[in-house]
Design a protein around this nucleic acid. Structure first.
Lengths: 338, 338
DNA sequence: CTGAAAGCGCTAACAG
DNA sequence: CTGTTAGCGCTTTCAG
């Protein structure tokens, strides 16, 4: 593997000059630079980023920390789309991305902070981490620049990107109300999720603004899981037959509710309207296609990476990015819509 | 950031001793080691992997090189599942993974080899790369250990993992034949794909063994794209009304054929049976659910990572892994199967 | 069992 | 415009 030393020797100059020439410094004779670049090419030189990182004390690498990158989690490809977005921006600005997954028991032994420190990543993006994750606080309090996805923590070194979940939920519920629904149930995620809290708030606001009562007993937690949501939906529909529609805090859970409806012989949307959240790919392929609140997950990843790198380079205006959502009306709420 | 130097000072020993103690060498007094480890913990020490990588000349990092990690490609989450599998194994053996994507124009300027060399990855896994990719040959001929997914190249430093595509295709077609189909069309991928070639072979073998004729004109290329497949299916069905079933080289293309059937008013599976390949998540959610040949994509990633790291550590028995596929019979070929 | 010293490949003052 | 020198944090001979 060629080094700048080899190039220096071949060009008859010092390694300093080679370094400067290759890094585009101005104070190098154009002739020398040409020559050096030529030789570098001939020798098939690749800079050693480890060495560079060591001396510069930064690696031009960011870490993407995700949880639940498992065989099962591929159904809801939220993580993947975010990753694709991160990757896109990162490669545009010539950074690299290393993926830290916290699924394996092996890695669990190391905290996020350790993971980041050891690899000397310049910063990290955290996605799919629970608010009550024991290591979250540690990394946030460390000096590692972080951007969180859907967790609203802000500090000198921490920012976040999220969508307007209150408004998103509100739009969904208003859509149901506008269709004449008065007994709307909600399947939420779990307690320790910021988005669940926000979406519940939006649910309540929409009801309130329409002059409808909020009934605690019409809200259940489905843990963002299809099966759990199905069970809860069956329970709710059995105990409260007045329910005519469901607002679900994720599409995956909406799929569960659709199964429940099928089990109970309820036609969608005539007897039961269902709206989800996320707009996962499956949503437009179910029968009937699922109405939902679309989040641009790719954009979330892209913006998170952008924000992080702006923070790293000291040119971030603010440390918060809130993206918009979009109501997608399909046939699970309106017959023959498409 | 604490270094071994700090620990050495605090412990009153040399940095050499610290290094040895922390790396579990045997020739260190147990008391000294205990003390050093204790101090390291107190000082919140994290080893600098850049420095270590520089001197050891290996980074314990592998590169995952994928193409087409775009906003659009998330529908077919093949890439994602492979990535999840790679990540799983990699984290089990305490390696890290850096993701190189070749979508952006920025990165395109660098060859795969350069990407790998600069980051000093110990080896690379390549997925979704076309056989005719100009940079593929370069990286394969370099000294960088590589594992390819679905590209059969083998050398001292190159291995691959794939599934038995001939057999997989054969199973699909035999299934159609067993249902009584005699006029079977095929929507293949594209010319420069190893898997397409193999699946075509399986298609032909199944026909041959059943004593059925192979008609070139019943095979079309859909470029692994839903829309292209749809167009080709419409064309085939129009030109050759005798067709009663389709074997598609990917599920995504099978979705396209399903659309074509709908357009032409053909009922599935009564008037047109369709079988795909891959078993993507969507396959079980379409109406009717799609019969297909399932590939365990997670396992492909996992095995690729395993093979690569075995190769790196000099304990790979062979450099080829062929995984099995499984026929999943759903309602796009057999009425009321589920 | 422990330490001194060299060096991995690179950048960054500081002198010329 | 160019070279000398001194490290970045770590591992690894080679001597004790």
């Amino acid at each position: 593997m060629t080094t700048i030393k080899d190039i220096a020797k071949a060009a008859g100059v010092s390694i300093t000059t080679v370094s400067r020439a290759l890094n585009g410094y101005s104070d190098v004779n154009e002739k020398t630079r040409k020559k050096i670049i030529e030789i570098a090419k001939q020798l098939n030189y690749s800079p050693n980023t480890l060495a560079r990182g060591l001396v510069m004390n930064k690696s031009k690498t960011i870490g993407l920390l995700v949880s639940g990158l498992t065989r099962e989690s591929t159904k809801d490809n939220f993580t993947f789309e975010v990753l694709a977005g991160v990757n896109q921006y990162v490669s545009e600005v010539d950074y690299d991305m290393v993926l830290f997954s916290t699924t394996s028991t092996k890695q669990r032994e190391k905290t996020y902070t350790q993971l980041c420190r050891e690899r000397r990543v310049d910063g990290a993006i955290l996605q799919g981490i629970r608010v009550d994750d024991p290591y979250l606080q540690e990394v946030v309090e460390s000096d590692i620049p972080c951007v969180l996805i859907d967790i609203p923590i802000e500090s000198e070194t921490v920012g976040y990107v999220t969508t307007d979940n209150v408004l998103g939920a509100k739009k969904a519920v208003q859509h149901l109300i506008s269709l004449g629904h008065r007994h709307i149930a909600m399947i939420n995620g779990y307690e320790f999720a910021f988005v669940s809290e926000q979406r519940l708030k939006g649910f309540q606001e929409a009801l309130f603004e329409a002059g409808l009562p909020f009934h605690e007993h019409l809200v259940a937690n489905g843990a963002f899981k299809e099966e759990r949501a199905e069970q809860e939906a069956v329970r709710l529909l059995t105990q409260h037959p007045e329910i005519t529609s469901f607002f679900c805090a994720s599409d995956l859970m909406a799929l569960g509710v659709m199964k429940a409806a099928k089990t109970l012989g309820k036609r969608i949307p005539e007897e039961l309207a269902i709206i989800g959240y996320d707009d996962i790919i499956l949503a437009s392929y179910t029968t009937p296609p699922l109405s939902t609140i679309a989040q641009n997950k790719f954009a979330m990843g892209y913006e998170a990476a952008k924000l992080l790198i702006e923070m790293l380079e000291g040119k971030a205006q603010s440390r918060v990015r809130v993206l918009e959502t979009e109501l997608k009306i399909r046939e699970s709420t309106v017959k023959n819509h498409g």
